[in-house]
Design a protein around this nucleic acid. Structure first.
Lengths: 149, 149
DNA sequence: TCTTGACTTAAAGCTGAGTTTAACTTGTAT
DNA sequence: ATACAAGTTAAACTCAGCTTTAAGTCAAGA
């Protein structure tokens, strides 16, 4: 079973222009063409495209994904550098998550701040609240934060 | 104590061009000018800038940050919409983190895959490994994933 | 006073990841 | 055989978030 670019795009839920763009950028070296020049996507290409999607979710750039694909197409001899690339990406995602957690703590604190201020009708009460009265979970965020405005 | 744009940029660890850009985009309505037209940053402006930085880390667009700043400058009457904005942003960050976790699971699995393949010298062994032999933590990721290449 | 470094603006340029457009070709259905 | 939807390319356009450049202004130290 082969698919045209439009069919494959539909399967993946992306515009066909995106697949053409990826092809132009060298991300789809595995896609063959018909005698008339049309892309003929195979079942196995769907798996490649899922792999690309997955890499993209990690925040990897198209350039790095292309490098990865190129290596993967060269077979087992490139397993080591591929592992290295994935390993670095994993580290990057972990870092990203840790940063997001700190950001989330800040947002939790700010939301609490406004909820409290709204309940008392003014921001004065909570702005001048002594540290001891601030619920424990928010104190850490407060310490590393500017005052909410 | 007042600072020029260059001094404030140094304090924040960003290029001065970024602060000028933010000003042009309306993110710094609080910064006053000298008679000669130069920006004079005050201590309190430093706190505003930290707030902007914090909002940016949540992935908020400059446009939304400007809206937030504008509201904050109008005082207590805008607390409710500000809370709504922060609340929405918090939801967005939570979603983002959940997605990253799934991505991380995938990367963990892929790294395990390559580590195993490298130890056995070929990807065949692990490619054909029956599900029961795959360590439990990785099975979930495998189920929602394309085969690694 | 003069030099010099840091400031000012407007406008253009850059990057990544696409999307849109225009002009043309292919292949399927009638 | 013909129509016509869907394919092809190159090139231009978009968007956010800056950065760079050019041409000019300000102000602190010698």
């Amino acid at each position: 079973m082969v698919y045209t670019v439009g069919e494959m795009a539909k399967l993946l839920g992306v515009p066909a222009s995106t697949l053409r763009y990826y092809d132009k950028e060298g991300l789809l070296p595995f896609v063959e063409r018909s005698p008339g020049g049309r892309r003929m996507f195979q079942e196995k290409d769907y798996e490649w495209l899922q792999t690309i999607e997955c890499m993209k979710k990690t925040g990897m750039s198209l350039r790095d994904i292309r490098v990865y694909i190129d290596m993967a197409m060269r077979g087992d001899e490139t397993m080591e550098p591929r592992l290295q690339l994935l390993s670095r990406q994993r580290e990057a995602v972990r870092t990203q998550m840790a940063e997001l957690q700190r950001t989330l703590d800040m947002l939790d604190f700010k939301c609490w701040y406004y909820e409290t201020a709204l309940r008392s009708g003014t921001s004065d009460a909570v702005r001048n609240m002594p540290l001891e009265e601030i619920p424990e979970p928010y104190r850490a965020a407060l310490r590393q934060l500017p005052k909410p405005e």
